[in-house]
Amino acid sequence: MENDTLKNIWSIQGKDFTPSSAKDIINKAKKQRQGQYIGIGVMGITVLILVAYSIYFATTFWNNFTLGLVLMISSLLFRIVLEVITVYKKENRLIEMDSKSYHSYLKRHYRLRLIINYYITPLCFIIYAYGFYLLLPFFKREFSNGFYNYLLVSGILSILVVLGIVINSVVKERRFFKELSNH
């Protein structure tokens, strides 16, 4: 989809929506979409690592180790599916709407994103952290103290870094929603 095509379509819509405001919305939506793609990629790589780890180390019977891995993988997969759906739905809607309708749609879209960010994402995050917590006794038993401490510290730091990224993303989306609401 080309930005020039959108500018031309939106410029015919009326005087309420100037090409510069259309360009501004396109650029912000594009930047936000790139952030979503990066998030999907990071979560996807993490899922692949966890699945590979599961295949290599998971036992054939059900225990807390397996439960922890399943919780971590399923929470990430759920978030990936949500992100893919919202990106796909937003892009499809852009093609079929005029500028005013799309602006209204974006407001609804970002209200939904706020619900996802404030309720679903923290729940997925808690499930992921709990899954990691379930793995710790197995790590302590199977690995040396030094490697266990490394896994513990790096795991906690990774969770904190991801939490920081999520909070930053939520703040950006909230700011974008406020800007849309003010137009």
Rank of each mutant, 00 (worst) to 15 (best):
M1G: 11
E2S: 12
D4A: 08
D4S: 12
D4W: 01
K7M: 13
K7R: 11
N8L: 03
N8Y: 01
W10E: 00
W10C: 04
W10R: 03
W10P: 04
S11I: 01
S11L: 03
I12D: 07
I12R: 12
I12Q: 12
Q13N: 15
G14W: 08
D16C: 02
S21E: 08
A22N: 07
A22F: 06
K23H: 01
D24R: 14
I25Q: 09
I25C: 06
I25L: 14
I26E: 03
N27V: 07
A29Y: 12
K31Y: 09
Q32A: 12
G35K: 04
Q36W: 09
Y37V: 03
I38E: 00
G39Q: 08
G41I: 04
L48T: 10
L48P: 02
L50S: 09
V51R: 02
V51I: 15
V51Q: 05
A52G: 11
Y53A: 07
Y53P: 00
Y56R: 14
F57S: 14
F57N: 15
T59K: 13
F61S: 15
W62K: 13
W62M: 15
N63E: 12
N63D: 15
N64Q: 09
F65R: 13
F65G: 11
G68E: 11
L69W: 11
V70G: 14
L71H: 06
M72Y: 09
I73M: 08
S75H: 06
S75L: 04
F78L: 15
R79S: 14
I80N: 09
V84H: 07
I85L: 13
I85T: 05
K89W: 13
K90F: 11
E91P: 00
L94A: 11
L94T: 07
L94Y: 10
I95T: 10
M97H: 07
M97R: 10
S99R: 06
S101C: 04
Y102A: 05
L106G: 01
L106R: 04
K107W: 01
K107L: 12
R108H: 11
H109N: 14
Y110F: 15
R111C: 02
L114W: 08
L114K: 14
N117A: 13
Y118N: 15
Y118W: 15
Y119P: 02
I120M: 11
I120A: 14
I120F: 14
I126R: 01
I126N: 03
I127V: 15
A129M: 02
Y130Q: 03
Y130W: 12
Y130L: 14
F132I: 03
Y133K: 02
L134T: 06
L134C: 10
P137R: 02
F138C: 01
F139A: 11
F139C: 05
F139K: 02
K140D: 09
K140R: 13
S144E: 08
N145I: 11
Y148C: 04
Y150M: 14
L152F: 12
L152G: 00
S154F: 06
S154G: 00
S154H: 01
L157A: 15
L157K: 06
S158P: 00
I159S: 03
I159R: 00
V162G: 03
L163V: 04
L163A: 15
I165K: 05
V166Q: 13
V166D: 13
V166N: 10
N168P: 00
N168C: 08
S169L: 06
S169A: 11
S169Y: 09
R175Q: 11
F177D: 08
F177G: 06
F177N: 04
F177K: 13
K178M: 12
E179M: 04
E179I: 02
H183G: 01
H183F: 09
